[in-house]
């Protein structure tokens, strides 16, 4: 828009400038084209598939059915069960990760000795492939092969509540370092002088944390929360390995996988993918709206 306006305001451009601009557009074109090909087209195509009855098992029965798939999915108790589980796991893991991540970030930020060692060891879980980690958790919680199963007794993965707790703990163990990393970047934004000044004025440690650090870090917290929430909402690999969705522990991504890959139902599966996409978009929108004033730049203006 703005470039368009700019072009209109200054209609006379030298030949050289014009040629340069044309060359610029030409040079951008391949990148733009690839972006459209690899992101926009799949999204449009899966939306198109979601409007059809399209099951690879019944190739002859493919037809356009409008929004019927959406009715089928949105009226299915399986979808809402999975949605509930996904939302529950998202909230629990993100909240715990934020608290732990903040603590870890403070530790990593303040460490004086062995800073490199502390940071490296804290980041190890994030470096391990999720599926590999999930398998180790699975064996650890399986009777006869695992020490954790012996510790807690029984077969914890066969009960819904304990299986969910295990999935959540595996997620938290895995992604807290990522959270900590993002928050540590935020901590670097807090000027030491300000903290010292506050300390001089008699602010307690907790007051310094809530009144200075957190407000200063808000943009970093927003980014960390947004990333993790979107990630957590699409949880798949941990569940796939740990329970494969049994005992009612399947997430929406698991359900989509089952319908799309196992069931070969492109229509229903695409419908679910589109719904997940919409849910993720809504989460992002809400985050920006709620924490919007914390976005960089608008903070000072908001204070008046």
């Amino acid at each position: 828009m703005s470039t368009h306006a700019a072009v209109k305001a200054k209609p006379v451009l030298s030949e050289g400038k014009k040629a340069e601009r044309r060359l610029g557009l030409l040079l951008c074109a391949p990148a733009a084209f690839i972006m459209i090909a690899v992101t926009a087209w799949p999204i449009i195509y899966s939306f198109w598939l979601s409007l059809q009855r399209y099951d690879l098992k019944f190739p002859d029965k493919q037809e356009f059915i409008g929004l019927e798939n959406y009715t089928a999915v949105l009226s299915s108790p399986y979808w809402w069960d999975a949605f509930g589980i996904t939302a529950l796991l998202t909230v629990i893991t993100v909240v715990i990760e934020l608290v732990l991540g903040m603590a870890l970030a403070l530790v990593m930020h303040r460490t004086l000795v062995g800073r490199g060692l502390v940071r490296t060891s804290a980041l190890i879980p994030y470096g391990i492939v999720t599926v590999v980690a999930a398998f180790s958790w699975k064996y650890a919680y399986t009777p006869e092969t695992g020490y954790l199963a012996e510790l807690f007794g029984g077969a914890p993965l066969t009960d819904k509540a304990s299986a969910l707790a295990i999935i959540a703990s595996a997620e938290i163990w895995k992604t807290t370092p990522f959270m900590a990393l993002l928050l540590m970047a935020g901590l670097a934004l807090v000027p030491d002088d300000m903290l010292k000044a506050a300390a001089m004025d008699g602010a307690s440690g907790w007051q310094r944390f809530t009144k200075i650090m957190v407000p200063m870090m808000k943009p970093a917290i927003l980014v960390a929360l947004l990333f993790r929430t979107l990630d957590a909402f699409r949880i798949f690999d941990n569940i796939f390995v740990l329970t494969a969705g049994s005992q009612g522990t399947g997430s929406v991504s698991m359900l989509t996988y089952n319908n799309l890959i196992k069931g070969l139902n492109l229509g229903i599966g695409s419908t679910m993918s589109v719904l997940i996409f919409v849910a993720v978009a809504i989460i992002a929108f809400v985050f920006i709206k709620v924490f919007g004033t914390a976005a960089p730049g608008s903070d000072n203006g908001g204070k008046r």
């Binding site: 098992k57 019927e68 399986y78 196992k262 139902n265």
Partner: peptide, 9 residues
């Protein structure tokens, strides 16, 4: 399930 209409659990 047979009609591939519903959602598979």
């Amino acid at each position: 399930a047979i009609d591939s209409k519903g959602v598979m659990p």
